[in-house]
Design a binder for these strands. Structure first.
Lengths: 209, 209
DNA sequence: TGTACATCAGTGAACGCGCGTTCACTGATGTAC
DNA sequence: TGTACATCAGTGAACGCGCGTTCACTGATGTAC
């Protein structure tokens, strides 16, 4: 258990406590899988007393809000990085967006639920919503670009929401173990690909003028 | 606040306490919206002491399991009743199944999450899973019937799972307020109908022999 | 460069709270005779 | 039909627990002179 670099010395001031608490909370939320995580646990993990958080946060929900907001920032960054590996307009950009979304949910299921699911009433809910909107705006942009590039007729927002619905449903049913209970043999990747195909790639094309 | 029929007399024995506690728990789960409901609250609502449940249930998770299981039974019953209003093979049977699913989620969002979402570790999880499987089996049967009737080529189970994914995603995003945050103007009914159309009704038809 | 001092991020003990569960009990019900 | 009694669904007080939050405090840091 080292602090900063190579020294083992435990200093009175933590230095990065705010972010350390957010990280600890994020880990615990994912480990406890929806059972409420406790602030005391996060303090234990960060190695500080249970009173320390109140130097950095108004209350517990303030930390939760920060975790959710950073979740959206992370998700958007990963989506951008993945999409940018392909040329503008490439169909692979659409495919990879779905894949990253699902992977994000599978890797941090409880964080995913916190971001998209029913949240407790949060003191800083506005920042969460703002980051969520930014993330969606990016996806919408990508879908709109795709439609323009391929001369797809139709409302890009409607198409984006439809794809989102499908992929979100798949992620939810996957991380909640519902597919496993009811249709264990299905191949989730294939399922999503097949749906996305019909929702996006077989849209009527504008006849080339 | 009456008991049984018209008498106001409060008798020592409740008579229907088991079901009354399940009902109270179900109400509270939906009211508290994912914040954990407390067994004590359920007792208050049923008008008994906090020790009374232990005559009927092993522990708190036992009650939760019963709520979830009854949720699946209810959902299946509603699905059947709605579908049976239409002739076998009618496309309306497919449409109405989606509508009932969404309505169920909207009416009792926290129950919906309990049934399909990450559940706490339940002492009686098997009965929940069993009822869930029965419910899915019914839907699968309906989809298979539809496919047979219309000569749709394809794996009925795969088609059923795709529809489920879509409808489940829509219900989740709806009850979690995500559509409202990010694309408030969309018409959920239209969105689902449009997707379902492409997922089901435009499947390749077997050429009539 | 050295010292005084304001700042503020931490401590650790304590608080009140509501929870799930237990215990010995009480009283209503139904059955045997 | 009336009575004795076993059964068991309830009571209500108590428990130990971990929680979020507060409080007066301590000690490290950085700045003014």
């Amino acid at each position: 258990m080292k602090t900063q670099g190579s020294t083992l010395k435990k200093s009175y001031h933590h230095g990065e406590l705010r972010q350390a608490l957010i990280d600890a909370a994020r880990q615990l939320i994912n480990e406890r899988q929806g059972n409420d995580f406790s602030l005391s646990d996060a303090c234990r993990r960060a190695g500080v007393s249970t009173a320390a958080p109140y130097r950095h946060f108004a209350d517990k929900t303030d930390i939760i809000a920060e975790v959710a907001a950073q979740g959206f920032v992370d998700l958007e960054r990963r989506l951008r990085e993945a999409a940018d590996a392909y040329a503008p307009g490439a169909p692979e950009r659409m495919v990879v967006l779905s894949e990253i979304y699902v992977t994000f949910g599978v890797n941090e299921p409880a964080l995913f639920r916190l971001m998209f699911g029913q949240r407790p009433t949060l003191s800083e809910d506005d920042i969460v919503t703002a980051k969520g909107k930014a993330c969606f705006a990016y996806v919408l942009q990508e879908v709109a670009d795709y439609c323009t590039f391929h001369g797809v007729v139709g409302n890009a927002q409607m198409i984006a929401v439809q794809l989102w619905t499908m992929v979100h449903g798949a992620t939810s049913l996957l991380i909640d173990g519902d597919y496993a209970k009811v249709a264990p043999q299905i191949d989730t990747r294939e399922l999503i690909a097949s749906c996305a195909d019909r929702l996006l790639f077989s849209l009527p094309q504008r006849t080339t003028a």
